[in-house]
């Protein structure tokens, strides 16, 4: 699970053809999504915010390319408004350490905390102290149980999860010529982020592509078992035109199974950026596309939401950042759009 969440959140994959997003992602409490592009703090507020002498703490769940990009987006936005980041932590997916990190950061009396609560249950008590002290809370992806908007937190910011699943379906359908059979490898656990993405893929295939049918469905909870699962799926369905894999970690196992079977025709689509997966894609292998989120934009939107809350302006409860589809043609641009870093050299050397 730890590795799973790491891949999901540290992921990114893109669709350069960033679609005009009609967000159908709904929040953990059924909130309607607002696009991150709508969360903007006007320049005329700069002086007022600077005068407040505000500070922020970034209390993350882990370290990764994804977290670095979110941090960069948030820090740049804070810098624009003269807000100093006074503490940055990584809980290493340890709920107890996240609780300790919050307590330690509160000693520096931050005005704002941006954080990814590790899970709704254990995070509820962890953020209680910050909430009681009136710190502006903006959460990434998860919401602590029982927290109410706008009294307890300013906003949740996350990926446009439905769009990610939909774009994965569109990319796989395009790679298959709009017809054929598909295997659906979904995340077999009650986890908001993956469940939304997986179901969006399935719904899109079923509704938008009548000539494509999902003939095999297999849940996965341990990425290490992906290769075995793919082998079993291919044994029963040797003519699969494509496989959707819930995130990049298990996709690496599925790719290994296809290679071991000498299969060069079954296409793979997955979510979140991964160098080995992208390398296969640019070499013309089985991987057709990767769909990723815009992590830098997530950070910028989180910071902007917190600043709007400081200014006592209305902030929508649930904000989503767009997804991008990365193909062999736009790896460099896609990597930059998602993570705000150059694509690995191995990809540009192809």
């Amino acid at each position: 699970m730890k590795q799973l969440i790491r891949h999901i959140l540290s992921g990114a994959a893109l669709a350069l053809a960033t679609l005009p997003v009609s967000a159908q992602t709904v929040g953990p409490q059924g909130e309607t999504a607002t696009l991150s592009s709508a969360i903007v703090v006007a320049d005329e507020n700069i002086e007022a915010v600077r005068a407040g002498g505000h500070t922020a703490a970034l209390l993350w769940h882990d370290q990764s390319d994804f977290v670095n990009a979110v941090t960069a987006g948030a820090t740049d936005e804070f810098t624009r408004f003269g807000i100093e980041v006074v503490a940055t932590t990584s809980a290493g997916f340890d709920a107890a350490k996240q609780r300790s990190d919050i307590e330690t950061a509160l000693v520096k009396k931050p005005s704002i905390i941006l954080s990814l609560p590790l899970d709704p249950v254990t995070s509820a008590a962890a953020f209680e102290e910050a909430k009681a002290e009136g710190v502006k809370l903006v959460f990434l992806s998860n919401l602590p149980s029982g927290y109410k908007h706008p009294d307890d937190y300013a906003a949740i910011v996350t990926d446009d999860l439905f769009q990610m699943g939909k774009q994965a379906a569109d990319a796989l359908a395009a790679a298959m010529g709009g017809k054929g059979t598909v295997g659906w490898v979904f995340h077999d656990a009650a986890y908001y982020v993956t469940n939304q993405r997986d179901n969006a893929f399935k719904t899109t295939i079923e509704n938008d592509y009548p000539d494509i049918s999902i003939v095999a469905e297999q849940g996965i909870s341990d990425p290490a078992r992906a290769e075995d699962i793919a082998n079993a799926m291919l044994l029963r369905n040797p003519d699969l035109g494509g496989i959707y894999v819930t995130w990049a970690g298990p996709a690496e196992g599925v790719l290994a199974a296809l290679r071991a079977n000498g299969n060069k025709t079954t296409k793979i689509v997955t979510l979140d950026l991964s160098e080995p997966i992208a390398l296969d894609m640019v070499r013309g292998g089985n991987v057709a596309a990767i769909v990723a989120d815009e992590a830098y934009e997530l950070g910028r939107a989180m910071a902007a939401a917190a600043i709007l809350d400081l200014l006592d302006q209305d902030v929508p409860p649930f904000v989503v950042a767009p997804a991008v589809t990365v193909t062999a043609d736009n790896v460099a641009e896609g990597w930059m759009q998602s993570l705000h870093i150059e694509a690995p050299k191995s990809l540009s050397a192809q």
């Binding site: 340890d94 709920a95 107890a96 350490k97 249950v121 254990t122 509820a124 008590a125 962890a126």
Partner: peptide, 16 residues
């Protein structure tokens, strides 16, 4: 002590 402090139990407790 972890369960009391976090008011919850999670499979990752103690792991690190």
């Amino acid at each position: 002590l972890y369960a009391g402090r976090l008011q919850a139990a999670r499979y990752t407790l103690g792991e690190s």
